[in-house]
Simulated assay, not measured.
Amino acid sequence: MKYVDEFRSHALAKQLAVAIANTVDTERHYRLMEFCGGHTHAIFRYGVQNLMPSNVEFIHGPGCPVCVLPIARIDSAIRLVKQHDVILCTYADLMRVPASERQSLLKAKAAGGDIRMVYSTQEVLKIAEQHPGRQVVFFAIGFETTTPATAVAIKQAQALGLTNFSVFCNHVLTPAAMQALLDAEPPIAVDGFLGPSHVSTIIGSQAYERFANHYGKPIVIAGFEPLDVMQSALMLIQQLNSGRHEVENEYRRAVTHEGNQKAQTLVNEVLEVRAQFEWRGLGFIADSALKLKTTYAEFDAEERFDMVDVSVKDVKGCECPAILRGIKKPQDCKLLGTVCTPENPMGSCMVSSEGACAAYWSYGRVYSS
């Protein structure tokens, strides 16, 4: 298929592997964090790690919006369904993420809650129109990539006069998470970053320049195909060898320096930055998430239903928080493949289609040495 097969070419992969092997300094170890879960799955699915020299290591990061959502937010959504009899709509990935007391949205649905999987915000608006006597809440999640669609839905609901539609907003911001990783104590051992691709189509490569300059860490915006990942790794290695720390854009076919300014303007019109927000594994991070502006407060589920979070600890023994911080890898978790499986997940990293544990389970158990 045009524009896909070209980025999965076996011959080109071999050439890139040789180029990387010839470029690395055998006296040093390269720790490259692929920030986005999509990159993690590409690395495992196509065996990219096996094509790297032994001194090039990929570190999994927090770039999975389902994975970083704290248990408290899912608990709040379940209480919303039970206490207010709302129709709760969300994306499929979130349905099986464990909440407290071994609950999940899927189990709450099985127990009689009206919880529906949707593919788009437009479906949620139609459900609200079809059920004028019921309150319909969209459980919105995602990084900057999915945020514009939520902003559009809110503006459409206002134009349509949908008084029974609201949003439980859980959109989080990539740069804030990257800064939290770089400010962590003790410092996380990462030499450079493979920057997220889809997020960067919205916020542009310029959003990472302050991190490269201030922290001295090279960042390469990488596409999701295996050759994208390999080329980006080569670019990072070249920067590290020459002592540079710049933002480079490997994914130029989709990402620009400024990003999608129309989408940015739309989001800024409807949403604003929260003072702080809890991330699974990273704790509370200042200015790291979005909420509805007061001018759109009538569509804010947290305001309409007076929602309050109660902080909850992760499942004992689950290493998902440490995996999201780049401190551990899936094979370091004693629950993986025993208690924790895709059919019986203990943590969000096993559930999400972008989760590191899900990638390891699906493609990477051969790396268990």
Rank of each mutant, 00 (worst) to 15 (best):
V4Y: 11
H10T: 09
Q15E: 14
V24K: 11
D25F: 01
H29F: 09
M33N: 07
C36V: 01
G38M: 03
A42N: 04
L51P: 01
P53F: 11
V66M: 10
D75V: 03
C89H: 05
R96M: 15
E101L: 03
A108C: 10
M117T: 14
Y119N: 00
V124Y: 06
A128R: 06
G133F: 07
T147P: 12
T150S: 15
A153R: 07
L160C: 07
N164Q: 03
H171R: 04
A176S: 13
H198A: 06
I202F: 06
I203A: 00
A207T: 07
Y208G: 09
E209N: 09
A212M: 10
N213R: 12
G216H: 14
K217R: 11
P226K: 11
S232E: 01
I237D: 05
Q238W: 04
E248W: 12
T256V: 10
K262E: 15
T265L: 10
N268C: 05
E269T: 14
R274K: 15
E303N: 15
R304H: 04
V308I: 14
D309M: 12
V315F: 15
E319S: 11
I323T: 04
L335A: 05
E354G: 06
G355S: 10
G364T: 09
R365A: 00
Y367G: 00
S368K: 08
S369H: 14
